[in-house]
Design a protein around this nucleic acid. Structure first.
Length: 480
DNA sequence: TGAAATGTTGGGGCG
DNA sequence: ACGCCCCAACATTTC
């Protein structure tokens, strides 16, 4: 074969199905699928430990899928632009295909790759597949980006349907010459901290795992999603977030699958609507990150730059490891540490606790989530932390302060979620499960709880913390 | 995609 | 019978 090959540069699109860049590369002839590990080009947000564990498993899965299609994954380490040029030269490739990413650092990387490839005479062919709608595509009537979710959502519903999905290529033509590849282990994605052993029990990374999770959710979760999703013990959410982050499934695949699903047509299709709305929040997060790229490290609402955050290493440590003495908060963090994931309702409560009860900067929380979440995603992480803090777009007002006890009684009424993740409290009756410090001594003794020996006392008193937060907020507003 | 404080209303106990 | 108080239950306002 003398036919020129092309490079397919995999990035946040680790799948064969609905991958327009891959499909185009396959149509063009021989394909060299490539993944480059280059955390140095992720700006301030190189993937954390949980993300790296997921990534190595996902790359293994992608390689398996490629091999079944008659190909294989080439792995490399080094600057993206120079590495791609070297691989292109080794394989005799003349065209570079890839799907766009939207993070600020990724766009810088993409610009460098594009410029250098073109200068070297390589044709560059980028595609859009990571979002339902391009951030530039949806704009308010004044041409300015949306800052309010409700309007963004309405615009999404009024827009034409997202593009249809494209099938996976069933056969990939191998190039005449494979470029050199680095063994997966040599990328050293696993930190060796034993995190992998825990995560392996909870997840099956890769395209097949994503498809299975979607099917499971469509069959058993979607119809009851609207009413069940807020109850963390009921496992009513899709758990698709890590798959989406790594592109093992695309938002278009999810959108169309939900729309096609029989449950979506019924009059009580609140489940489908509510779920697609969550997918729209992801779109909104990307919309904001693209239009306001500084928000990954700075508040969108500028007055929050003056907020009087505390600096308290002990409090941060207690929060990070689930020792705050508030059972629901600790349960959430422990679920995160054990599985790389946390139920969304609990994320809000845990985040609110850090920012409002402990008065610690949202960025510290964002960084901890970034390190430990398997679905760590810069757009969503940024939006949600700023939303909880009250310093972002369409954010909850700062004075909206979750009471972890009230939230526990409302969304974990029997305490099942707390019992699962804070086993030392498992035998406490529901009445005290969310506030063990208030339980009569006899009740505690009966179930072997000894404060603060077997479980900590609250690191802060709720009422005192609440008024401290409100004071800090008022001070920020006056320090004009 | 809050919670707490404050205000209002109405039933019932009681002198 | 009447006024008074207490206090749920609910609504409104404030943070």
């Amino acid at each position: 074969m003398t036919e020129a090959a092309s490079l397919m540069w995999f990035r946040a699109d680790l799948r064969l199905a609905d991958n327009p860049a891959l499909a185009a590369a396959a149509r063009a002839g021989a394909v060299v699928p490539v993944f480059i590990w280059v955390p140095e080009e992720e700006g301030n947000w190189p993937p954390g430990a949980a993300s790296r564990w997921w990534l190595q498993a996902s790359l293994r899965s992608l390689d398996d899928s490629l091999r079944r299609a008659g190909s294989r994954l080439t792995l490399a380490r080094g600057r993206a632009a120079s590495t791609l040029l070297r691989l292109a030269q080794q394989a005799g490739a003349r065209v570079l295909f890839f799907n766009r990413r939207y993070e600020p650092a990724a766009r810088v990387q993409e610009a460098a790759v594009t410029a250098q490839a073109r200068a070297a005479g390589i044709e560059v062919s980028p595609f859009d597949s990571g979002l339902l709608f391009e951030p530039k595509q949806l704009a308010s009537s004044t041409g300015k980006p949306y800052r309010v979710f409700g309007r963004f959502w309405r615009a999404m519903l009024a827009a034409p349907e997202p593009e249809p999905t494209v099938p996976a290529p069933h056969k990939l033509t191998a190039p005449a010459r494979w470029p050199e590849s680095v063994p997966l282990e040599e990328l050293r994605l696993e930190s060796g901290a034993g995190l992998g052993a825990a995560l392996r029990c909870a997840w099956q990374p890769g395209e097949a795992g994503a498809a299975a999770a979607l099917q499971q959710f469509l069959r058993h979760g979607l119809s009851g999603y609207e009413s069940e999703r807020d109850f963390p013990s009921s496992q009513a959410t899709s758990r698709l977030s890590p798959y989406l982050h790594f592109g093992e499934i695309s938002p278009r695949q999810i959108w169309h699958a939900v729309k096609r699903h029989p449950a979506a047509d019924k009059p009580d299709s609140g489940g489908a609507k509510a779920f697609l709305r969550e997918l729209a929040w992801r779109e909104f997060a990307y919309h904001l990150l693209v239009h306001f790229p500084h928000t990954a490290e700075a508040p969108l609402r500028e007055e929050f730059a003056r907020f009087g955050w505390r600096d308290d290493a002990r409090a941060l440590d207690a929060w990070q490891h689930g020792h705050t003495g508030y059972p629901l908060v600790d349960a959430g963090v422990r679920e995160l540490l054990a599985t790389g994931w946390m139920h969304n309702r609990v994320r809000m409560i845990v985040a609110s606790f850090l920012v409002k009860h402990l008065l610690l900067p949202w960025l510290a929380g964002a960084r901890w989530f970034w390190e430990r979440l398997v679905d760590a995603d810069l757009a969503s992480n940024t939006l949600n932390w700023q939303w909880v803090t009250g310093c972002g777009a369409d954010a909850a007002p700062f004075f909206r302060i979750f009471n972890p006890v009230v939230q526990g009684r409302r969304f974990d009424p029997d305490g099942d979620y707390v019992r699962r993740w804070v086993p030392e409290l498992a035998r406490l009756p529901a009445r005290w499960i969310h506030q063990p410090w208030a339980a009569p001594a006899a009740e505690l003794r009966k179930v072997g709880v000894v404060l603060p020996k077997t479980y900590p006392r609250p690191v802060v008193d709720h009422a005192a913390a609440r008024s401290r937060a409100l004071t800090a907020f008022a001070a920020m507003r006056q320090s004009r």
